[in-house]
Design a protein around this nucleic acid. Structure first.
Lengths: 196, 196
DNA sequence: GCTCTTTTGTGACGATCGTCACAGGTGCGG
DNA sequence: CCGCACCTGTGACGATCGTCACAAAAGAGC
């Protein structure tokens, strides 16, 4: 049973309230769809090839989304505290996921179960609004990330991360960061050597 | 006044019905928010620095989204018939747009006015659902595109487009295509020369 | 048909990156 | 304390790409 006094529960509620005015009645409709889940480092929130049945609100720890291309991992996203992690197209269209989402640290998340969430949304238009807002956030985040990828060189992308998301550089290993930046690990090492 | 017998109007209605069961009542609520707009080649659906106030359903012709980086155009998206064109983060958060959307051919679109659309959505939950579905489509499309960008080399991306979106190659000039693929125009020319 | 403009192909060259190989460093468990 | 796994830096080398410059080709307008 979902414990509303849990720290993760309080975090997710605060997150929801930051997105939309949410009545107590909506919250009561919603929370049967929620559960608190924990993952050890290396465990999977979503496995490649499986259909995504949940949204995850990350309460503590972080995870990565990565494709496996010819046996090599290629990271496409990192999700930290207060992020929503999911595979939009798999969740929405029921397609098998082309990538995996994996905990990189011990992780606590609030899971939104798809079936129960849709049932709740059918009862309460404010939950619909919440869903739209979440999608909006996700789409906006993706748009921004695609832009830095298209407009900047590997070096510029690293500097951008350095100034805009310094805490990310603290927590993500350079090997994982490099594939996310789209450069070889060695190149990232040289980028870091060049400056300072 | 929005002419429901117009070809563009019929197209957009068919598009909406493909996304969600839409009652006549919802359609009547929605269509005051719609208008049919046309653009000459080179005209702007959205200018850089302006706040995006509309969604555009593309009925005929196509347009591009592009950033201006140091005086050079960098294309980030093309929108063809039956696509929804907008700047998600500008439309959603009211930020000025960091890129422009420009007609590349004479273009006919159905414009969804933000204010009127929100008013209509407040009246009718099915319009909320439509909005969420559209966002889902947009987010899924972006996710896919980001993936091909991260996983493939310039050459692979070109071959991917060749097999999956051949009509795009017919309509978009190679100069515009190259910046979208993330390679220099000359490199694209050589990629094309290598094969066959 | 003939300009003028835009688009596309090609050649040369230097810069950058990816790959391979290896060494130093750090942390963890036994 | 030792071994082992993982992460990070570094050197050498070849491949690829971007840039500049120019020529060929294709359209658009008169």
């Amino acid at each position: 049973m979902f414990d509303v006094d849990n720290a993760a529960a309080k975090n997710v509620l605060a997150y929801i309230r930051s997105l939309t005015a949410f009545k107590d009645k909506s919250w009561e409709q919603l929370y049967p769809a929620l559960s608190i889940v924990t993952f050890k480092k290396g465990e999977y929130l979503l496995e490649e090839g499986k259909v995504c049945q949940s949204l995850f609100y990350i309460s503590e720890g972080y995870c990565r989304a990565y494709y496996n291309k010819d046996g090599k991992d290629i990271n496409t996203a990192f999700f930290f505290e207060n992020d929503m992690a999911t595979n939009v197209s798999s969740f929405g269209q029921g397609e098998p996921s082309e990538y995996a989402i994996q905990a990189m640290e011990p992780l606590t998340a609030v899971k939104f179960d798809k079936q129960l969430l849709f049932a709740a949304a059918g009862q309460d238009p404010d939950i619909q609004v919440l869903g739209r807002k979440c999608l909006q956030m996700i789409a906006a985040k993706q748009e921004k990330h695609a832009a830095i990828y298209k407009l900047m060189s590997g070096q510029e992308r690293y500097e951008y991360m350095e100034t805009n998301f310094p805490e990310l550089l603290q927590r993500v290993s350079l090997s994982h960061l490099s594939s996310w930046l789209g450069v070889a690990r060695e190149t990232l090492s040289r980028i870091r050597g060049r400056r300072e």
